[in-house]
Design a protein around this nucleic acid. Structure first.
Lengths: 122, 122
DNA sequence: TCCTTGTTTAGACATCTGTCTAGGCAGAGA
DNA sequence: TCTCTGCCTAGACAGATGTCTAAACAAGGA
């Protein structure tokens, strides 16, 4: 269940937008991450997982936090997983999810424009 | 053309995911921003604008950087604009775009999980 | 072995999204 | 005023997305 095929964080992932313009490939790779974040349900799921002190959350708790059906939550968790933002493991009856900070950090750094030149006209 | 209706950056926008779990409303608001970033073309557009030294780019230059038609570029710029990530102004014949760093910073900070507890199982 | 519970997969369906063509508006120059 | 250029809007359309129900799979317990 744990995906091991995500060792590569594109080199361009750690440079801010204010640096060199993004290549086609970098943009495509990074857009996948942002797309996964671009849904309120997924953002709340990620928030619920990330804010959990132990670092792990059972699916049943996540499902309880929404009025959506189990399959829908499962679908959103899969999208987050395929984007490399979270991972999971089954332990007995339950499945636990946790965040993968590396990918989040890469996306965060891309958007970090602090210290960038302020546009004259604003 | 400049939108002035975007003074409010939701209070929850500046807290990292590792803090308190996102409210429904905050998640919806923030997801709009990430959704706008979740397309390779828009990410490249933003990158082209943000990496420009003068801080401003003419639409004609942006259009030249893609094989897409003008209306398609215009559509993507509109999405970025409505997400509060960029703004624009017509000067004579040309229209110039620049980034709005506040919104980018808010999204960046949300994803900044540096210093968060690393999950035990990874 | 069978039943129960937790979770995922499969498939259907309405809605949203990215792209295009056609056409319109704004400003500059003849 | 006319025309040209730059950019946007309107509308169409194929494909992607979010949601559901039904069904399957996995693990634990009687």
């Amino acid at each position: 269940m744990s995906r091991q095929e995500l060792p590569v964080l594109d080199a361009a992932c750690c440079a801010p937008l204010t640096g060199e313009a993004l290549s086609d490939e970098s943009a495509a790779e990074l857009a996948k991450g942002f797309k996964a974040l671009g849904d309120p349900v997924r953002l709340r799921l990620l928030s619920l997982i990330a804010s959990r002190k132990g670092g792990e959350v059972c699916v049943c708790e996540l499902t309880d936090a929404f009025t959506l059906t189990g399959p829908t939550i499962s679908h959103h968790l899969r999208v987050l997983r395929e984007a490399g933002l979270i991972d999971c493991q089954r332990r007995g009856t339950w499945v636990y999810y946790w965040i993968l900070p590396a990918k989040l950090a890469a996306l965060s750094q891309l958007l970090d424009v602090s210290g960038a030149a302020a546009p004259a006209s604003v």
